[in-house]
């Protein structure tokens, strides 16, 4: 089961700002911008990011309205994936993490009353784990391109039609141990700055942008972090 590390991440201030609810041209205080720059430098210096991705591709054997069956008696449940990837020949299960160091520093900042630093560093961590996703997708896309297959955009457990309980299933389908990711008894990924997802692979796959996901999300009216345009 493939594992990738040493993924170069170049974090943009603009992306960090969006995760503070300061996207879409909001007026940003210079103090906040300079704190972001300072924290981005300290993240590098203290090596707070330990990006790692584990993934595995499985051949689709059959599907119905509520699940997709995979080779080796495995299956992914919930109506979302069969509905949006009816043409998938394979599915890739992907698990991304930036490791535990950054979030430990966030907790330490909060505990010592440095809430602003904690909050911005937390947003940097969210940006970093989000940025791992396109890296992983690029890699898988280049692997499957030789067979003239395309890759879809990702879907995550927790989206409507893809229950969060599928997290246990997904973690069993990739080498989660190898990258130090596990689930708590209640189903929260540890380290917290981790994400799990599934993509469809086949001759013609659908892709969508982050803004399109937000446009369809039930939280779009109130969400501070949405991507527009």
């Amino acid at each position: 089961m493939p594992v990738i590390r040493d993924i170069p991440l170049s974090l943009k201030t603009r992306e960090v700002l969006r995760r503070q609810g300061l996207g879409g041209g909001a007026k940003v205080r210079p103090e906040i911008k300079s704190l972001i720059r300072e924290l981005l430098a300290s993240v590098k210096k203290a090596r707070l990011l330990e990006p790692a991705v584990a993934y595995e591709c499985y051949t689709v054997s059959s599907m119905n309205g509520s699940q997709i069956s995979l080779e080796g008696d495995k299956a992914i449940h919930g109506p979302l994936i069969p509905a949006i990837f009816p043409e998938a020949k394979k599915l890739a299960i992907i698990l991304c993490t930036i490791g535990p160091r950054l979030e430990k520093q966030v907790t330490d900042y909060s505990k010592s009353g440095e809430t602003m630093r904690g909050m911005i560093l937390d947003g940097i961590g969210s940006t970093a784990v989000d940025m791992l996703v396109p890296e992983a997708l690029r890699l898988i896309a280049s692997e499957v391109s030789s067979r003239d297959y395309e890759t879809s955009s990702p879907v995550n457990p927790g989206m409507p039609g893809f229950p969060l309980t599928e997290q246990w299933n997904l973690l069993g389908l990739v080498n989660a141990d190898e990258i130090g990711v596990s689930l708590t008894a209640s189903g929260v990924l540890v380290p917290r700055k981790s994400t799990s997802m599934v993509i469809g692979i086949g001759p013609k796959m659908t892709r969508w942008t982050e803004a399109e996901v937000c446009a369809r999300c039930s939280l779009r009216e109130t969400c501070h972090y949405k991507v527009t345009g």
């Binding site: 909060s110 009353g113 809430t115 909050m119 937390d122 209640s186 189903g187 929260v188 917290r192």
Partner: peptide, 15 residues
Amino acid sequence: VAGDIHDIGKDIVVF
């Protein structure tokens, strides 16, 4: 609450 380990949102409100 039990079963959840997220802290930053809570920490901001507490602060």
